[in-house]
């Protein structure tokens, strides 16, 4: 069980690392969100599974599973709020003829 737990934890960390790398390599905001969602999904799932296999207390396991469930709900909500705001602000900027600022600082 110990070995399984560590394999899961290391794999989760690797996916978090890949997500971070993607966050830096990808060209603009919209594509970077995709990299962030790797950390959010497989990275978080693997690390939490690793922690679940490491604990003996059933209450701790239940709490970890609940954290996993809540992350599955809050993650997409946050991503949607971010992306939707980005789209709206881009539309506002396009309609605002007077300001000729560059798209990204």
């Amino acid at each position: 069980m110990f070995v399984v737990s560590w394999i899961l934890l290391v794999l989760g960390s690797v996916f978090c690392l890949i997500g971070t790398l993607g966050l830096m390599r990808l060209p603009d905001f919209y594509t970077r969100v995709h990299a962030a969602s790797i950390i959010d999904s497989l990275g978080a799932i693997l690390i939490l599974l690793g922690l679940i296999t490491q604990s003996q207390d059933p209450l701790v396991i239940i709490k970890l599973i609940l954290i996993l469930l809540f992350m599955m709900l809050t993650g997409p909500t946050a991503v949607h709020a971010l992306a939707h705001t980005a789209v709206l602000s881009e539309k506002n900027r396009a309609s605002d003829q007077n300001s000729k600022h560059p798209q990204e600082p």
Partner: peptide
């Protein structure tokens, strides 16, 4: 559906 699209990396919901 919208949440599942966002949860799978490679696609996410804009609107």
């Amino acid at each position: 559906y919208a949440n599942c699209i966002t949860l799978t990396p490679g696609t996410y919901t804009l609107n």
